[in-house]
């Protein structure tokens, strides 16, 4: 199994439709130190595409998306600035 950095913050956006998970991520990414990881838990299929797209637009790093046993994903984002 690959090494996954423990997130410094987990945002529970399960059951929330886009763009709400993205709004929550944008609000809270500055709560963690630089280079720390935020995990967004989401089950809206749009989030699977939109969180990495947000990272590209905002120059943060999409680390990976990991399937959750109960459905949805933990989408890991590293704060770059």
């Amino acid at each position: 199994m690959t090494e996954v950095t423990q997130p410094a913050l987990t945002i529970d956006a399960l059951g929330k439709k886009c763009p709400i998970p993205i709004i929550m991520l944008a609000e809270q990414i500055n709560y963690v130190p630089l280079n720390a990881v935020v995990a967004v838990l989401a089950d809206d299929p749009a989030a699977y595409t939109d969180v990495p797209a947000w990272c590209r637009l905002k120059s943060h790093r999409h680390v990976g998306s990991y399937e959750l046993p109960e459905g949805g994903w933990a989408i890991h984002v590293r704060r770059n600035y």
């Binding site: 439709k17 886009c18 763009p19 993205i22 299929p45 699977y48 595409t49 797209a53 590209r56």
Partner: peptide, 24 residues
Amino acid sequence: GSSCTASTLRPSHVLEAMGVLTHG
């Protein structure tokens, strides 16, 4: 092509395949 405007709950397969923002 946002999911909320489509008959399905998924966003457009075009936007998904491109990896671009699907909402708004």
